[in-house]
Nucleic acid binder design. Sequence first.
DNA 1: ATAATCGTTCCTGTAAGGGGAAGGTAAAGT
DNA 2: ACTTTACCTTCCCCTTACAGGAACGATTAT
Lengths: 133, 133
Amino acid sequence: MNIGSAAKLSGLTVKSVRYYADIDLVKPVINEKNGYRDYNNDDVAKLGFIGQARKFNFSIRECRDLLSLYEDKNRSNKEVKKLTIEKINEIDQKLKELTLLRKKLSHLADNCKGNGRPDCPILDELSKLQKKS
Amino acid sequence: MNIGSAAKLSGLTVKSVRYYADIDLVKPVINEKNGYRDYNNDDVAKLGFIGQARKFNFSIRECRDLLSLYEDKNRSNKEVKKLTIEKINEIDQKLKELTLLRKKLSHLADNCKGNGRPDCPILDELSKLQKKS
DNA sequence: ATAATCGTTCCTGTAAGGGGAAGGTAAAGT
DNA sequence: ACTTTACCTTCCCCTTACAGGAACGATTAT
């Protein structure tokens, strides 16, 4: 099938599918007659798989790893679980950072009356050169 | 002072300081003799201000806004507070997304034994084409 | 035959700089 | 005075994961 159908079936954009072909992630056969990319059902499954993994925040590099595990029928579920746990840890780290950031920002906001006067504790705070992070 | 000193005093990298000059965020005087950028204390204060705002996750575009408020002695603290609240809301949104993502991922991980066998519920799940997000 | 839709490649842009090359300038050591 | 070292400059490529669009060819529908 052509790229449009493959994109629709896998739930991706044509741009993404073409990009994945460019970076050798999912390489279709090339139709010699017209130069069109020709995708089969297996390719569509891989594309869908990647789409899901991307939704789970896996990078393209990680998708590549997952895909090779996905294609290897003798792979160990240990590696897959390891990748997943690492991703969870990453997310936890990000959550921690964002939570701290939110705390600091709301502290700033709480101290500012927002009453239209020129004095602003937020700007005052931002203008302090801080030596320690 | 030269760019190196300005960078050190403001806690930024030389690359960043030069970049901020390139995008007209903090424009130093140019020394006609040697073409060097010449920063004064006021510039350093602005650079430090930007560095702080960046740490608080404000984008360059937002830093530009904050900076013009910072420089305007008659500004209203209302606008500054508004920007801050918006940033907090953004962070809340991101926190929500990440939390959901974490839940989904740990659900995946929980269902996988990771015992070295080839069957992997994680890959099985990722290979499902999902119609609804 | 013609128009609409689909496909192709190629170029540009995104955010916010990092890395490094090539070359000029200034300060410090000998 | 001379050399080494340190610092400055511009310029270009690299990063992520595509999106947007131009220019042009192929296929399909009217």
